[in-house]
Design a protein around this nucleic acid. Structure first.
Lengths: 162, 162
DNA sequence: CGATCCACTATGGGATTTCATGGTATATCG
DNA sequence: CGATATACCATGAAATCCCATAGTGGATCG
C-alpha cells in the first residue's frame, strides 16, 4: 500500500472540482472505492480537511466496534468524523468535487494545497497552509525531522515519483 | 460493507415521505431487503431515530455486533429495539415513509437530518440535531481528532473481512 | 548528444444523467 | 366507503460524464 507523499497545489474550478494529485491516486489504486474521503480538521488557528482512503475509515470503524464501553471519545469520533465526512469519487480524469460547506469552512476558493502525510493527507487553503508551516517551524526549535523543502515554496509535483 | 457517511437534510412531504440519501442507499445496495430499518433512540435531551440495514440487525440478533449506545442489558434492550423497529422499503425513487409515531416522538415535521455514523445512521429533527452537536462540541472543546491520531485507535483481532 | 515525439497529468466547458421533490392516480383496508 | 398506503409520472437543480486543450517530463530516435 502506497503512502501519501509531497505537497501539491491544484486549481479549484468554478464547479468546485479539483484534481487529486496523481501520486495520491496511485496510492489508492488498489482500493475498491475509487475516490477519497475528506472530513474537517483544525488547529488552533485554521480549519483544513483531513483525507484518506475508504479502507482507512473501514479499519477505523472496525476498531471502534470493540471499544468496550460507550465513551465520549467514540461519540466524538462518530459525529465529527463519520457524520462530517464526505465520500468523494473521482471523475474520469481523477478529480473530486469539494462540497461547498468544506470550501466555506476552510476558505478554499480557487486553489487547494494537498499535503501528503503518509497514511493520510490534508487539504488546505494555500495561504493558510503557509502560515501553518511557519508556525510548525517556530514551535519545533532545534532539531527538525528531515522534511525540509516541503515547507517552502509550493512547487509543482515530485520528481521521479513514477 | 459500505459505511454511512456525511450528514444530509432532506424534506419530509405532507405524506411523510423522505428521500434516503443516495449514498446511504448505495451503502445498502447489495443487501437483500431494499430499504432501511428505523427504531427509536434517545439522549438525555432528545428523541431521535437509529437506522441501519437489515443485515446489521441480523448480526445484532446473532450477537455478532454490539450496539454501542445500548451496551448494557443488551438482551433486554434488543427486545425493545426489535419490537419498536420499523422496516421501511424504498419507493421507486428511493424514499421511505416515516411512521407517524416516529415523527411524533422525534418532532420531525417538514425536514429530517440523516446522520451517517459508519455502520449505522441516525435521523433527527434538524433543530434538535443542531443542539445535540453543540453539546458534543462543548464536551470536546478545541481540536477535534486528527486522522493520524485516529489511526492509533485500538484494533480488533483482524478478521478476514475486506 | 540534441531534437522530436509520446504518455500522462491537470484543466476547461458543454452535454447528459441522477437525485430530491412534488403531484396525481390507483390499490388496500378497516 | 373514507382514509391511508403504494405506484406512476413530471420537474428543476445539481452532480457526473465526455470531449477537448495544454503543459510537463520522459523516452525515443536520428
Amino acid at each position: 500500500m502506497g503512502l501519501f507523499l509531497s505537497t501539491t497545489i491544484n486549481k479549484v474550478d468554478s464547479k468546485g472540482r479539483v484534481s487529486v494529485p496523481a501520486n495520491f491516486r496511485a496510492a489508492l489504486k488498489q482500493e475498491e472505492f475509487q475516490g477519497v474521503i475528506l472530513f474537517p480538521g483544525n488547529t488552533d488557528q485554521h480549519e483544513f480537511l483531513e483525507g484518506c482512503g475508504m479502507e482507512f475509515l473501514e479499519r477505523l470503524s472496525a476498531g471502534l466496534e470493540t471499544l468496550p464501553t460507550f465513551s465520549e471519545e467514540q461519540e466524538t469520533i462518530n459525529h465529527f468524523v463519520f457524520a462530517a465526512a464526505a465520500q468523494l469519487p473521482y471523475d474520469q480524469t481523477g478529480r473530486i468535487m469539494l462540497p461547498r460547506e468544506m470550501m466555506d469552512a476552510t476558505g478554499i476558493t480557487t486553489q487547494a494545497t494537498f499535503v501528503g502525510l503518509g497514511k493520510t493527507f490534508q487539504v488546505w487553503e494555500p495561504e493558510a497552509y503557509k502560515q501553518h508551516v511557519a508556525q510548525l517551524r517556530q514551535r519545533s526549535p532545534g532539531r527538525r525531522p528531515s522534511a525540509p523543502a516541503l515547507a517552502d515554496v509550493p512547487r509543482p509535483p515530485p520528481r521521479g515519483s513514477s
